[in-house]
Amino acid sequence: MASVVRGALKLIKEKGIGGFFREIRNEGYLSGLLDGNLMQTKIHNIGATVVGVDKFGNKYYEKLGDTQYGRHRWVEYASKNRYNASQVPPEWHGWLHYITDHTGDELLLLKPTRYGVEHKENFSGEGDEYIYHSKGHALNPGQRDWTRYQTWQPKKA
């Protein structure tokens, strides 16, 4: 607890009282008051080590020692109000789920440059334009033409 207070005081000293409150809001402490998950993550974070930050700003924490095995890795999402598991890019997924001990930064080196596609979170419920539709789907704008014949065109354009 003392370290938390020390950290807060240090922040006030650096940024001033206004900057301190802005920082508090940006870091999600205010939304954490209503969001139990976030608050629990924040409490969890105390004393944990940040293993890495991915390119979306998600922070990956690990705390060995007094935490239960299997609950010793977690993520604090970059977005404090709208977060979900699909925001974790594939390179961090393995580390986060104890599939591998290699961190996302290490695994990123293995990503193929030629055809590796950027990670995109799941936008379900965020509007049709964000949703992935397969190429046979009626809502896919680049929908494949399954007509197997060419029609006669009355006037050649």
């Binding site: 197997r148 014949y149 060419q150 029609t151 006669w152 009355p154």
Partner: peptide, 11 residues
């Protein structure tokens, strides 16, 4: 030729 220039609608 069966797949080209087909008439498919009454006009």
């Amino acid at each position: 030729g069966l797949k080209r220039q087909r008439l498919n609608d009454p006009m």
